[in-house]
């Protein structure tokens, strides 16, 4: 499937999805509530078969907490990027996709640890790198730490 077909496929499932294309990937941005359904469809539909999730990234872009999924099909060799984000910084909740992709478990733990995004349905959500009693989420852009981060210049 080429990018146009994948775009049609995603638009058929989620009509309000927005698309972007750069020279590497087609990316689709969807609402957090639609994400799990879309990834399930992308993984299980015989036309798409996106079975290999090669990267999950958390990001804090323009005040929005985002999660970015990079998917590839090992049989059909196509790739797609799915993005989702929320402006809610107090209680950002996304659906966990560990039931679809087992490898997502540690990635989601990492994103919870560094961005404070809660994944509903994750079997064991906990601080992965930072100490359990750490305050704040270090990779958020508004994170400040007067003790450990010294600003030069």
């Amino acid at each position: 499937m080429d990018n146009t077909n994948i775009k049609e496929f995603v638009a058929r499932h989620i009509p309000e999805a927005t698309f972007e294309e750069n020279k590497q990937f087609l990316s689709a941005t969807v609402e957090p509530s639609k994400l799990h359904g879309l990834l399930k469809a992308l993984k299980e539909n015989p036309e798409t078969l996106f079975d290999y999730l090669f990267c999950i990234t958390g990001a804090d872009v323009q005040g929005k907490l985002m999660v970015i999924y990079h998917l590839e099909s090992t049989t059909l060799k196509h790739q797609v990027v799915v993005k989702t984000g929320t402006p809610d910084r107090e209680n950002p909740v996304f659906d966990s996709i560990t039931d679809l992709f087992s490898g997502a478990e540690l990635h989601e733990n990492e994103i919870f640890d560094l961005f404070g995004i809660i994944f509903k349905g994750h079997p064991n959500l906990r601080r992965m790198f930072m100490p359990d009693d750490w305050k704040g989420y270090p990779l958020r852009k508004d994170y400040t730490d007067e003790v450990n981060i010294v600003e030069l210049s």
């Binding site: 990267c55 990234t57 490898g103 540690l106 990635h107 990492e110």
Partner: peptide
Amino acid sequence: KFRSPNMCNLSA
């Protein structure tokens, strides 16, 4: 972001 191969291997 670095997609580290070892972390994904560890998850299995």
